[in-house]
Amino acid sequence: MFRSSSCVRAFTLALLLVALSVAEAFAHCFVGPRFLPATLATDDPCVADELSLPTVQWSKTGDQPPATEWDISAELSKRITEDLGISIGDTWSQIHQPGGFTAAGFGNFETTVQYQLLKDGPHELALLLGLVVEWGGTGAIHSGLAEPWSTLTPTFYFGKGFGDLPDSFGWLRAFAVTGQVGYSFPTRSFDVDAGVFIPQTLVYGGSIQYSMPYLKSEIRDYQLPDFINHLIPIVEAQFTTPVANNFGNSPITIGTINPGVIWVGTYFQVGAEAVIPVNRASGTGVGFLGQLHLYLDDMFPSTIGRPLLGGGSSAPPQQLKF
């Protein structure tokens, strides 16, 4: 276990150093004229050079009585080629039980490899495949905040803007949806310590979003205040449903619905969402989720904002044609 943990950390550091030192350019999630922002609770359908630092969540667990939980996480995403990207991330959590007991520590390291299947500009459609790996034994196992086993989640992501609807649809064309579906299976089937089966789960979610920047630049400029023109109101939802190897555990789907808003700037975006549990097993009361998200490709267009391979900074830009 120690060896595995060291390898993951060494890989992470090496990755970061490479990301800091090398150089091609282009976008975060642009699909034709549509910009899909980085979503807070789910993932957007593009590979990109981005940094979410921090993402902060406050919520109350579904325990009886409920515990108070803080989660602070960071995630760095980096393109290897124009269509292939990787991400590394980790979360520090603190859970305070009523009565004074507090557990705190890091969760397991998480890495993601993603491949951009499609970016169809005229139809504002993006498709992405990914493999999320939570590396067992790299977090605070003894605090109960991480598991000793790893979890693999092959995931399909999509995003679709409705700007290709006829002009007669007017302001409705500023809507877009994103979604993801993954199948999560642990590398162990039974937790000997707790004496329970470890279920395989379906992990799915998505967002519906309304782009004020799109309304202003593609449909109609109502000359609203600049601040309003940078907003993307959004509702996200995320769910986990046990589907196999769940003997003796609860079969209940857990999840949250998160209404909120994202402010999109030139170099970064800021998002805030309420976190509403869909049932008692998912949490107690309304929580909060906030994120500062940095566009590395815009901040560092000639260095770490470019894919590591597939083009150099000296390459001339492609001639634009109609």
Binding site: A74, S217, D298, S302
Partner: peptide, 23 residues
């Protein structure tokens, strides 16, 4: 190691260039 990584990420944020996508 984790603190080092977070420090490196914050370092990235600290040194910003000045161009971006044209909206």
């Amino acid at each position: 190691i984790r603190i080092l990584i977070i420090a490196a990420l914050l370092n990235i944020v600290g040194a910003v260039a000045a161009q971006a996508h044209a909206f």
